[in-house]
Design a protein around this nucleic acid. Structure first.
Lengths: 108, 108
DNA sequence: TTAATATGCAACTTTATGGTTGCTAAATTA
DNA sequence: TAATTTAGCAACCATAAAGTTGCATATTAA
């Protein structure tokens, strides 16, 4: 199907999902599906779908208790994004270095 | 339409686009559309579409010279992704800190 | 000037995505 | 036990996205 990093990127590429994820991160307590949906202008089923996508990407964990399903954010999953970024970071640093060299040569 | 950060996330959410971007990053010279498409099992027009998406997200800059259009990667655009990540980094750090506290309490 | 090259644009197809409605089932509460 | 609450599942819809083919156009080379 889809590789892990793509799932992760696609999960956070949707603004609504970023909002849901954010809401979960800043809440210390786990939230049930209904509690989450109440915070959004969308049907519960719509929210459920997004949560499934987030869970598939490892960004949310779900704990079932009775008829309720409590969701928790798993920000650590974002470390893979960070790892991906790290490689390219060296190139934007290089550009800064190049700019520095350029400015120095102008001064001289 | 779509906000900047969403465009950026969507651009890198596609594996082909990540490949194109990567190819441009690791090449010191700018590449024409044709040169890029030759590296992919896809029509030139397909690649062109991806490049347009990358350019819209600020990840690629295009320099027209005669009938050719030379593309350059702009890894610096990824700094916005980094900025977005930064906020959540503190939460995965918190988790590590919590784990540290837990281990310490076990030692005592 | 004719031929070849590099490219963009438009239309089209297929599949994915975001979201909805309607229904069912399992827990809980009265 | 009956009513309510929490949630999943399936079907459906509209739109976006990935990729294709075909054609027009501008630049460059013969």
């Amino acid at each position: 199907m889809q590789d892990k990093i793509t799932k992760l990127f696609k999960a956070i590429a949707d603004p609504t999902r970023r909002d849901i994820f954010h809401a979960l991160v800043i809440t210390s307590t786990a939230l049930s599906i209904t509690q989450i949906s109440n915070q959004f202008e969308m049907t519960r089923q719509g929210v459920t779908k997004h949560i499934k996508t987030l869970a598939d990407a490892g960004l949310v964990s779900i704990n079932t208790q009775g008829r309720e399903r409590f969701c928790n954010a798993e920000p650590k999953a974002l470390q893979d994004v960070n790892k991906w970024l790290k490689f390219y970071e060296q190139f934007w640093d290089d550009k800064l270095r190049d700019l520095g060299n350029y400015l120095n040569s102008k001064d001289a």
